[in-house]
Design a protein around this nucleic acid. Sequence first.
DNA 1: CATGAATGAGCATTCATTCAT
DNA 2: CATGAATGAATGCTCATTCAT
Lengths: 220, 220, 220, 220
Amino acid sequence: MAAAGARDREDAERGPRARPRREAEVVAAAARVFHERGYADASVQEVADELGILKGSLYHYIRTKEDLLFRIFQDVHRDVESILAEVASVADLDPLERIALYVQRQVLYNLANLARISVYYHELRRLGPERLALVLEWRKPHNEFLRRLIREAQEQGLADPAQDAAVVGNCIFATIIWTYRWYRPRRSPSPALVAAQCARYAVGGIALQGQTPQQEGQTP
Amino acid sequence: MAAAGARDREDAERGPRARPRREAEVVAAAARVFHERGYADASVQEVADELGILKGSLYHYIRTKEDLLFRIFQDVHRDVESILAEVASVADLDPLERIALYVQRQVLYNLANLARISVYYHELRRLGPERLALVLEWRKPHNEFLRRLIREAQEQGLADPAQDAAVVGNCIFATIIWTYRWYRPRRSPSPALVAAQCARYAVGGIALQGQTPQQEGQTP
Amino acid sequence: MAAAGARDREDAERGPRARPRREAEVVAAAARVFHERGYADASVQEVADELGILKGSLYHYIRTKEDLLFRIFQDVHRDVESILAEVASVADLDPLERIALYVQRQVLYNLANLARISVYYHELRRLGPERLALVLEWRKPHNEFLRRLIREAQEQGLADPAQDAAVVGNCIFATIIWTYRWYRPRRSPSPALVAAQCARYAVGGIALQGQTPQQEGQTP
Amino acid sequence: MAAAGARDREDAERGPRARPRREAEVVAAAARVFHERGYADASVQEVADELGILKGSLYHYIRTKEDLLFRIFQDVHRDVESILAEVASVADLDPLERIALYVQRQVLYNLANLARISVYYHELRRLGPERLALVLEWRKPHNEFLRRLIREAQEQGLADPAQDAAVVGNCIFATIIWTYRWYRPRRSPSPALVAAQCARYAVGGIALQGQTPQQEGQTP
DNA sequence: CATGAATGAGCATTCATTCAT
DNA sequence: CATGAATGAATGCTCATTCAT
């Protein structure tokens, strides 16, 4: 996670071969520009400007503009995958604790990588059909992971069995993802605090409690 | 009226003012197209096609493409405003109950208006600066309304006072808003069920409970 | 044929609706530009300049640059088809006479439509695969027509049966087609003279004669 | 030689001067690529790929892309010149026999060098003005040679004096050149047969005969 | 109101050519 | 000689917007 969080910052320590660096810089610049202007409105020119090279030169690293977008997805996917693996490997946690840890880690990652994450969650539909399908495939294990935890919590009497695992799973994802839309680096509370409170909110949202308002009957 | 006879087949049952209907159709078509293709990728031509008129004719209703976008925002804002008013006017609810009602009503509205809502939440940044500022201004009362309820709940011992009202307020908005991204009309549970479970999740997320995992200290 | 020949010239007499005219002008301008500069080197800008409109406006008539090319092929094909039909319908000609008529008419057409014909014979491979296949399909009946006449002439003792019908058929096409490369409107003899001599050359090339050099054995 | 050892596998049997071979390979690769894709559509990259070197490395052999084209012209010119010289030096041939020999040798050469010949005849106009003029100058002696033979044949009563020497000269060139467009190495008859029949066709086309259709009067 | 041709600015992409290593 | 990143100009195409009919 630490390595992932560092990705948005400029790397100071580089060895003799600067090539991989270049690639990462290109993707980082694209993430910044796409975040700021939106993928469809951003021009390849603007990405090149951000990098201080000419538009034509950018095409040494990519074949199409969409490649820039897809590489952002690849990078985020890789990081997010490692968060999942890490959370899954922690021992001695009950399902609710594991969900709390998952939410907290993901939120922390999001807040540390706002530009890339914004693109990752906002511009999915700008990918071509094959890549779109690929990314949707990537995301499935996360859905499964979370739903399984929810069901386990329900079976162990920790979570309300009346809640649909798919629905509340999506609510938890909402809690994690939407941070990219409201978090303001300088104005909002510290990432650690936000991550903790999101985790607390998500767990509270599914936990079994005594008193809960029942309103379904009131629907107009 | 006689001169307009040739156009009567298009909408037969219309009162003396035919304009509002036509206007609403235009905005609805725009919402559908912008939802499907994304605002930036959608062309004015496609909206005209959706309406069965020519591109040039569309400019009788609008001055710029952004007008189409903005009218969607106006419509949604109007509806959402009335939901807020309605929820505020219900008597004899404690803060948590009122939050639950608010979430439930909003989610129900979202699920019934997926196209417009998707645009409303997804394309905000495509508005020009003045209109963007206007919409952000519109949204403030909702923030205030929700935060006030949270604080009241905390003061009345119903909600966890350790939670930052702004943060959990955003979490509740996340729960409401994100439905536009995951809800699938035919595959997902009924709107009523989803709305109820989202409300239950949101209230549970802020309600005071005995046991909650405390992880802030574990953050690396 | 007369109508076909007139196509390259500007039409003076036009009715109230100038629309079909516009289309023909576009194709004629494209033919001129592609002839002068070569299809691949010519830019859509240059075609627009030739028409006195803006590049973007040209796209009201076409979807791609290749459309311009293909319409030239369509026009020439239509004309050439009618020449074939006409030659086939003349009564009381022996095979050699019919071949002579065919060559003469085709050459006359070529010389009257140099720009379009140059493109038709020179830029075939610039068409996309489907259109290329289509045009090759169009040309097959001409091959068949000519080969059949050659075989008939051979059977009737008018043409040398030792000649391969496919090979000399191609030689006759060469005689017809290559005119687009060497004919110079002001410097060369009159179209009528050239057409007659090409016909005479082609017929002589296949006709049965007493003395002909036999060199195949000398091949190194 | 030791330093160059790493490249020995590419061409093992080479004398002390490896440069000319390398040069010839470059031109041959260019001819193949230009033949396949067309000069204007072919990229320098593709020629480099064909050679298995990088684009930048190609510029050790050439200064511009057009150089590649011109060298093909130089090579073909050299060969074609030697055919002319050879045909001119054969003793004891009457004009028609010499024309037959010329056609046959040229066609044989064309069929054995389809790629270069296609470029030679197809891409002439892609040369810059000076080189274009140069090549046109090169070709003049061939025109003169052929026309002189035709006129001699006419004077000796071997060829029809009513035919314009320039026109039928071009017809003969057509017969020779057009082979590059219709000859298919595996499907068409043997080069020797084709060359013989082209020669037979060309000579028949100009030879004096009794019966010839006269259609000039029918021209509309 | 409707039409549809025209506008003109902008964009992604290609490519011949250069040059420092 | 070879490399490959960089250049910069050009190109095909799109599209929001206008306007005469």
